[in-house]
Each structure stands twice: as C-alpha cells, then as structure tokens.
Design a protein around this nucleic acid. Structure first.
Length: 235
DNA sequence: GCGACAG
DNA sequence: ATCTTGTCGC
C-alpha cells in the first residue's frame, strides 16, 4: 500500500525559523547557495536566504520490539542538507532526513529514541523534542556528549546516574550504561519524563555503551556512506 | 574579549 | 561528525 508521502520539508515548518536564526548566526561566514534558496522558496520561505556547503546527510530508523530487543524494521534515507552542523541546530540539519526515513516505515512505533538531546538543549528543544513534536509521539534523547548543563560524575556501575542541570532546572541525566564506561546523556523529549527516559535507555543497552538500536542505526548510516548505490532498500 | 559547543 | 595507529582487555 503506497500512501502519498509529503516532502520532509512540509513536515518541518520550523526550518523556516531555523533558517532565520542560522542566517544571523552565520552571517558573513557562509556562502549563499542558490539551489537551496530555490528550495526554501518552494516551501514558502521566500525571505530566507541562508545556506552552507552542498552536502548530503544520511539517516536511519531502526524499529525494535522493546520487550525482546528484536529488530522489526529498518529504513534509511539520504537527502541534501539545507544546514551545516551548528550546535543547537542539529534538528534542522538531520530532522528532514530522519522524517524521510520515517515515512518509509510500514509499522508505527510508539516511542522514539534519538541520537542527540531532548530538553537538554539551550532552548529545551533538541532533536528528540523537535521530531517528537512533529510526529506527536513520546520521544527520548540519548547523546554521547553534553551540549548544555552541568552534572556530577555518576557512580561507576551500570544504572547509576546523576542529574544534569541548567539554569536551576533538571534537564536530563548522566547515565552509566556500562560498568566503568563513560556515561551517556539522557533527556526527555516530547511527552516523556526523566525516569521513564532513563529506564528506556537502560532497557535497550545490552552490552555496549550505546543502546542497541542506536548502534544499529549508526551502522546503517555508515553503510550509506560507503555502500552508496550498491545497496537497495526493500519495499 | 574568550571559551564552549548534540552530530 | 571525520581522520587515523596502536593497544589494552574479555
């Protein structure tokens, strides 16, 4: 059954605002890319003139059964980026490709886990929050490093964690997912609380620092870069 | 003015 | 994120 999939840009209206913010931030430091300007005009952002290097970005979505850890479905997508990587603006760069991969799924997952932060973000709106809102699904962020906030070093054993705080509020946790291994940073995204977020991440970590689905998704992304056209998606 | 800075 | 050699440990 093929359903008409809207272009990712249509599902990412905030790109317009993001473009404006980036335009200010990168003014004088980035050259204008005409093709991207055309694209922005097509989605109704005629007054936006940002753009960076011509580049493609790959995204992968891995669906697992939360109880068994079994992989249910995997999808990938490649797209041209409208944004360079700028700390705090990750979702504007990777969000559209993620949604493109999401649109290929034949199943409808109930919870989202992201490689990146949720509310542990300067504006409390990291990639997990952003995409979670767009898809209206509970979402959790699991980042390998800190973007904002401070925290104490958690105890050395798996499962131990300390709160990540910023401006007087708890925005996430530094969570030990393996004994004696550098902690990850977990934060709620959309419609999720910290305790549930931590429990979810822990439940998905078998024997590595990162949750199994995150590792698999990263692997798929790598294959996109090296495999190129030698690989095809089922369906 | 100088660091810090998800991926 | 990417580049990139060897090395320590189960």
């Amino acid at each position: 059954m093929t359903r008409e999939a809207p272009p990712p840009s249509a599902l990412f209206p905030s790109s317009v605002r993001g473009a404006r913010l980036l335009q200010e931030r990168l003014r004088g430091r980035v050259r204008i890319r005409p093709l991207a300007l055309q694209r922005l005009r097509r989605i109704g952002a005629a007054d936006v003139t940002y753009i960076g290097e011509k580049e493609t970005v790959g995204a992968a979505v891995v669906v697992v059964d939360a109880r068994t850890g079994e992989v249910v479905e995997e999808r990938t997508a490649v797209g041209e980026t409208l944004f360079p990587y700028v700390p705090g603006f990750l979702s504007f760069r990777e969000g559209p490709a993620i949604l493109a991969a999401w649109e290929k799924l034949s199943v409808r997952p109930q919870v989202l886990l992201f490689d990146g932060h949720g509310i542990a973000h300067p504006r409390r709106f990291g990639i997990a929050s952003h995409v979670g809102v767009l898809l209206n699904l509970p979402s959790v962020g699991c980042a390998k490093s800190r973007l904002v906030g401070e925290c104490a070093e958690p105890g050395g054993e798996k499962g131990e964690w300390t709160p990540l705080t910023d401006a007087g509020e708890v925005i996430g946790a530094a969570l030990r997912t393996r004994d004696r291994v550098k902690p990850v940073f977990v934060s709620p995204g959309h419609r999720a609380d910290l305790a549930t977020s931590i429990a979810l991440v822990l439940s998905l970590c078998s024997r590595y620092r990162l949750p199994d689905p995150a590792r698999r998704a990263h692997q798929l992304t790598q294959e996109l870069r090296s495999g190129g056209r030698s690989r095809s998606e089922p369906g």
